[in-house]
Each structure stands twice: as C-alpha cells, then as structure tokens.
Design a protein around this nucleic acid. Structure first.
Length: 195
DNA sequence: AGGAAGATCTACT
DNA sequence: GTAGATCTTCCTA
C-alpha cells in the first residue's frame, strides 16, 4: 500500500478532513503493524479560528502547522496526546485532527497499550487512539507520506459510506461552521450526538 | 506560580 | 446518556 501523496494534503483543511474518512492509519512498530480506519476527523484553521492551536501565532509547540503538509502535528491536552495531520493550501495554516479510528490490525497490542479489553472503547476518541497506537510527542513532525516512517496513512479499500457533519467537540469557542466529519453509523465514532 | 486546554474515566440518574 | 473529578504540558504573568 502506498501512502497518500503530499498534494492530497495541499488543500483546505475541511476538504482534507472529509476525504481522510475511510483511509487507513498505519503505525509500524519493530516487528508488527497496528492499523485502523479513520472514522472521525475535525478541521482546524490558522488565524481566525479561535479553537485552533495556531490562533495565537507561531509558538514552539505548534510550528508544525506552518510547515510542510502531510506531517504529523501532536500536542497534549488533559493528559492526552492528540494526533493531527498538517493540511492546508499553499501559504496557509491548518491541520486535521484524527478523532477516532476503527481497529483493523494489531488489536491485541492495542488492548495491551490501553489496558482494557473492550473493543468498542479501544480507539473511539482522540486521546484513546494515540494511546492504543503508542503515539507520543516524539512523533511530532514525522512524515506521513513516506511508507518508511513509523506512522503513515494509506488509501483504504473502496467502500460506500455516508459522511455526517457536526460542530467540533470540546471546543470552548467554536466557529459558526461545522468542521467535524464522521462516518454515519460507525461504532467507533466518539459521540453520536450531533451538535 | 497559576491557569487553561480540541479529553477520559467513573459513577451514577 | 450525562455530570463531575482529575490527569499533564505549555503559555502568560
């Protein structure tokens, strides 16, 4: 499987967020592979988006959002690492938060990483999936378009699904636009409720 | 030093 | 399904 090319991410964050649904997030560890289908995402812009980490200008920790698209942008909130993909049009700023995946390969390892046995709550949240896949700040800036990386994203198999939109979750000051996208009816979407 | 943050877990109604 | 306590960085004063 070849990773999605860089120009996939060279578009508006909301477009990329929508199109990332159904793609496969792959995490390579020494002798095994963990992977899952992306079922829920959120788009974040740069300036003008009060919920974005980039809203207050460049900082040390959010530099990745200004840099090359197709890279990982990882930061911590409430003791959880959140995994984003840098995506924006040329010269702009933005990222897509991966909020939930459906486990495919390496489920036993994910259960061990999470310390639980329940499949449904294994990766149905942004902080949960990073824990299940063993993702930490160390991977900030990693290239997701290179299959040699420890984390990358490939095209999944073709399938039909309905895309739903809602407002972003947990954001104290959201924009008046729906920027959360998820696969309708999927068991691993973090909240069914539509805000 | 203090507070806020894109969340999670647990314990209930 | 919803409410409340609580976890750790990084930013701002």
């Amino acid at each position: 499987m070849k990773p999605l090319p860089k120009n996939f991410y060279l578009r508006s964050p909301d477009t990329v967020a929508k199109e990332l649904l159904g793609k496969i997030l792959v995490r390579k560890v020494r002798n095994h592979i963990l992977s899952g289908k992306i079922v829920e995402t959120e788009a974040y812009f740069g300036e003008g988006d009060p919920a974005s980490r980039a809203a207050n200008g460049k900082k040390k920790f959010n530099l990745a959002m200004w840099e090359d698209v197709g890279k990982a942008f990882i930061y911590m909130v409430h003791n959880n690492w959140l995994f984003n993909v840098v995506a924006h049009e040329k010269g702009k700023v933005g990222a897509v938060l991966i909020r939930a995946i459906e486990p495919l390969e390496g489920i036993e390892v994910m259960k061990k990483n999470r310390g639980i046995d329940n499949l449904r709550s294994l990766t149905n949240g942004p902080g949960k999936l990073t824990k299940a896949l063993g993702i930490t700040k160390e991977f900030n800036g990693i290239d997701l378009t290179n299959s040699k990386s420890e984390i990358f994203i490939v095209k999944g198999k073709e399938e039909e699904f309905e895309i739903c939109k809602s407002h972003r979750i947990g954001v104290s000051r959201d924009l008046n636009v729906r920027l959360r996208f998820f696969i309708n009816g999927n068991q691993f979407v973090s909240y069914k409720k539509v805000f």
